[in-house]
Design a binder for these strands. Structure first.
Lengths: 337, 337
DNA sequence: CTTGATTGCCGAACCGGTTAAGTAACGACG
DNA sequence: CGTCGTTACTTAACCGGTTCGGCAATCAAG
């Protein structure tokens, strides 16, 4: 199967290579008649542009980059990532853009990846997730001139284009919910505080707790099921134990529920549980878990569209995607008397 | 930042472009002294090869392709995919290969993707998952001459290189386990029978059931939590209900456990549950779930290494990766009396 | 000392596109 | 009728590597 090139099309259509290029790219410089003829020949020969060649001359790779600095284990556990990637893909596939996905161990490797991609001209832009407080990726991407859209609160984005969901509003909603059920002693099983989202939720949690006059406490974990379970065990063993626990992801909430069962307690009778990042997990446990619901797939799609806009010359901007919605399920109830 | 090319290195090292290329690629044609000098200059200038240029001339993309024909929703629910991708990545990153990941809606789109990739010379080879019985991808990949490694039993691979785990042995182990606990009426909540793995397990299940003299029954689902829950509900409502249920993935097993709880029953006292594709999920429920454990990350890595071998001229072959191991946990027990 | 093979490097073609510069034909306009 | 501006192309340079043919210089063999 001899691969069909633009040169072959030119030969068959009786025009020059350059004309073919103009015709195929819908650019001025050829008559409509010629364009039609060229397109017809290209169709007949089932011509597909060679990515490498186009990339080399046009200096565009038509590829977006996404680096995930998490262990493979975390990635399997957190439904967020695969959903997000799916959302990104759903947009890219339409535009016949590609996604360069790289899984690395830590932030340093992530930085190295950006350097490499920039040097190789590997990607046209990147999507950055898991923002930290004072994130080192921001200055690097600026220096490299690599277009990027951050998945982060504008407060963390330092002026870079970003797409965000309102974590503060979400936390307010969550605390309003448990307070309105009558809970007075509430705990939060949080992720690592260096993550920007966690930091914002920590702050919102403290503020809302004061506003509502609650006894609020926080335990920081690494987001894993094990630490989520351990935190739950500790909280429930303490004096003046909380009657409601708000988790920072769904995995820890499910693990927490298992701990409650293991202690012979029940939810919501003995303790109300609220998960974050609602996924199927929250709907298949017994009882089903109240959760803060994001549309993660849509989120991925939105971010991708914003990056496309950015490359088309749009002004860098912060876009509020949506505010998470609290889905109240069976794990919510009034505190025990 | 003017990008540094091979030409610049040549200028500074005082040799021709061609010599630089030989030196950088460890090919014969230059003296050791020259090679060292070129490498030193390249290092100083922080030269990074331009992927597009290399791909264009060398006709290698140093990219592997992976198409997932599943909905984004399924991908988030099934920990398998992200884990597999992580395993693939862990190998590729070392070799500075890239992964082209494409998420599509169905098999037809997957076939179209292979056609496009082959025409574009986009990937050097592909990894194929979710094999079907008489899978149409096999003849297409053969026709396109696209190197591929299938994640599938040799019986399904039709002579194509493949990496597999022994589903038949695993199913034997699972049924031996429940039979040895004393169960006589067993059910299997299976995935869609067109999937090769499901088909093989269906067969092994029937055979082993006969061998052990068990009353075995099968319900086919679409692998989703909802259908897994529904199947469980139906099975437990039936006359002569099963005392042990073997699920085809972990998501359905967790959903099944919730149904058991919802009915006021308990596991393992009233029913023994066995999951497939062990993931964190199985360890965080209460009770923890007995599961057929794969090392999915390692599986992804193994497949990738076999594809690399294949491109290096290795003979196409079937590789047994490992046989899944039954991890017995709290959801296993003798049947109720 | 001649011949032939080998080594080390250069120059240039090439991969398959994009695009700037140049040119011929044509119509409009003063 | 000469000039200018479009239009519709062609030509050729270019992107940044790889690789082939060729040419001295060196070395071993005869």
């Amino acid at each position: 199967m001899p691969r069909v090139t633009i040169k072959e099309i030119a030969r068959r259509a009786g025009v020059s290579q350059g004309a073919v290029s103009y015709a195929l790219n819908n650019q001025p410089g050829v008559s409509e008649a010629t364009r039609a003829r060229v397109l017809k020949v290209a169709e007949e020969l089932e011509w597909v542009p060679n990515r490498a060649a186009r990339q080399l001359s046009a200096a565009r790779s038509e590829t977006f980059g996404l680096v995930l600095a998490r262990t493979a284990k975390t990635l399997t556990e957190e439904p967020f990532y695969m959903g997000f990637v799916g959302g990104v893909e759903s947009v890219l596939a339409q535009k016949s853009y590609a996604l360069a996905l790289q899984v690395v161990a830590d932030l340093d490797e992530e930085l190295a990846t950006y350097r490499k991609w920039a040097a190789e001209r590997r990607v046209d832009g990147v999507i950055v997730v898991d923002l930290r407080v004072a994130d080192p990726r921001i200055p690097l991407l600026r220096k490299l001139g690599l277009p990027a859209v951050l998945v982060a609160d504008p407060e963390l984005a330092d002026g870079m284009p970003c797409v965000w969901t309102d974590g503060t509003a979400a936390m307010n909603a969550a605390l309003d919910h448990v307070a309105s059920l009558g809970h007075r002693v509430v705990a939060r099983v949080a992720g690592p505080p260096q993550y920007g989202d966690v930091w914002i939720r920590d702050r919102a949690y403290a503020t809302a707790g004061r506003r509502l006059g609650l006894d609020v406490r926080v335990v920081h974990t690494d987001f894993s099921a094990d630490e989520g379970a351990a935190a739950t065990r500790d909280l429930l063993a303490a004096a003046n134990r909380p009657t409601a626990i708000i988790y920072d992801n769904d995995l820890m909430a499910v693990a927490g529920l298992a701990v409650v069962h293991g202690l012979g307690s029940r939810s919501p009778d003995d303790v109300t549980l609220v998960a974050w990042d609602d996924s199927t997990l929250c709907r298949i446990t017994h009882p089903t878990l109240t959760a803060m619901s994001h549309n993660i797939i849509g989120y991925g799609a939105e971010v991708t569209n914003r990056l496309l806009d950015l490359l088309n010359g749009a002004r860098p901007q912060a876009h509020l995607y949506s505010t998470p919605l609290l889905i109240v399920r069976d794990s919510s109830g009034p505190p025990p008397v």
